[in-house]
Nucleic acid binder design. Structure first.
Lengths: 232, 232
DNA sequence: CGTGCGATTGACTGTCCTCAACATGGGTGG
DNA sequence: CCACCCATGTTGAGGACAGTCAATCGCACG
């Protein structure tokens, strides 16, 4: 019986609003689940019977059109909440893009617990508001930025979001990191094709603004010039 | 001293979570404000000192790039909440697109009241989650739909959203309505230019799927065929 | 009857997509 | 240990869709 004290996201996730005694109850109604990379946890349109918290790894939230065109509408890092509380259906597909560990709850039980613990609902409200801000910022990118601006924005935002939830130093943005995404996922995130993503990364490399290694490891070489290219 | 009983959104806005006695307190800390079409209530990046509820009219939430490119990231109808509670700065500009009446609150006072009334925070959480769903659905449109699909989606969604908050029958989607947007606003909503919006509306009219009057009044002539063109 | 804003229409351009061939590299089995 | 294979990524040529620039229209207003 490992306590939540072990949990790597204990102090970041919504649980941070709870006392140890309350946490014990919450822990009893949830269960840990390991999901291998590539596997889908819930499907768009499914009944929303489960909600969960990411403990380790990265997941994508995506929706798609009838003919298969796909758009990633959110990315869940450790401590992020997934699923659709207080709703009938999940409005997007949730898929692991690395190996993932989550703590999942029956939605009904979780909602009951939440309504009895206003501090937890408050934390959820704050998180949801922040997520909404992020979604809207991304709408600007999708609707108005050029391919180059899109990629630069992604590269500059990446380290923030990665380090924010990860343990360690959240101050200085890292200039060397590993993307959790492949080319197709970057394309689905930015509303582009893989070819365009590949070409733009090539351009940025040729101009010496970034360097690549292993296709996933990126080093920011000139943060200032990149910031100029991001559109704002 | 008009009671909230008069208020057209009394039963739809977050206030619907409150008893009359609680409502009286909330009413005391808020004030009614009338805003003419075109006027901006808060600017992107401003200190978030005020939050508000739309009582009448329609407002747009928008962000923009350094060079003026703009994206509308949300539309607030009667009963919708605007501003950024629990945040330092407003992440988007809020502007009236029709004459508008709002009830506004000092953020600090409102937050204090909210934290003392969990049912209100719960209502806000539900609304924010719904808004997040809408934002994400729009991300799919911005990232992956063609110009035609974008316009068709807008036209088909419009009546839902309009009637939802308005009094009256929320069942059958209307096939005749007046857009609250001009061409530029449609363009900023869809991530297009006014010329493309104009041309696509022309196409849809020529194919007999819709008819226009006054540039703002739209009649849906063939909802089925339009639904096919929306991509899904 | 002019003025001015918003919308429409046209001609042309450019960015990004499509389709296709080719490269790379990590993993498996012989 | 090497050869092979498949998934993933890169590169190239050509085309389409939406953007740009500019002229014109239509209507509401003074």
């Amino acid at each position: 019986m490992s306590a939540c004290g072990d949990c790597p996201v204990r102090n970041h996730a919504i649980c941070s609003a709870l006392e140890d005694s309350e946490l014990a109850i919450l822990r009893r109604i949830g269960r840990v689940q390991d999901i291998p990379a590539g596997q889908t946890l819930m499907w768009e349109g499914d009944e929303a019977s489960v909600v969960a918290n990411v403990v380790e790894g990265v997941m994508k939230l995506s929706t798609s059109l009838g003919d298969g065109r796909e758009q990633i509408v959110g990315v869940a890092y450790p401590a992020d909440f997934i699923g659709r509380p207080f709703g009938e259906r999940v409005p997007y597909t949730v898929t692991a893009i690395t190996d993932v560990r989550v703590r999942s709850f029956q939605r009904a039980g979780f909602e009951k617990f939440a309504q009895e613990h206003p501090k937890l609902e408050h934390k959820m409200l704050e998180r949801t508001l922040a997520e909404l801000d992020r979604a809207r910022e991304w709408m600007l990118l999708l609707g108005r930025k050029t391919a180059q601006e899109k990629l630069v924005t992604l590269l500059l935002n990446m380290p923030n979001r990665l380090s924010e939830t990860q343990c360690g130093t959240p101050e200085a943005p890292l200039d060397h990191f590993e993307l959790p995404f492949g080319r197709q996922q970057m394309a689905d995130l930015l509303g582009l094709t893989i070819e365009t993503v590949s070409r733009q990364l090539g351009e940025l490399t040729k101009s010496g603004l970034i360097t690549l290694k292993n296709q996933r490891e990126v080093t920011i070489q000139d943060r200032e010039k990149l910031a100029d290219l991001a559109g704002q």
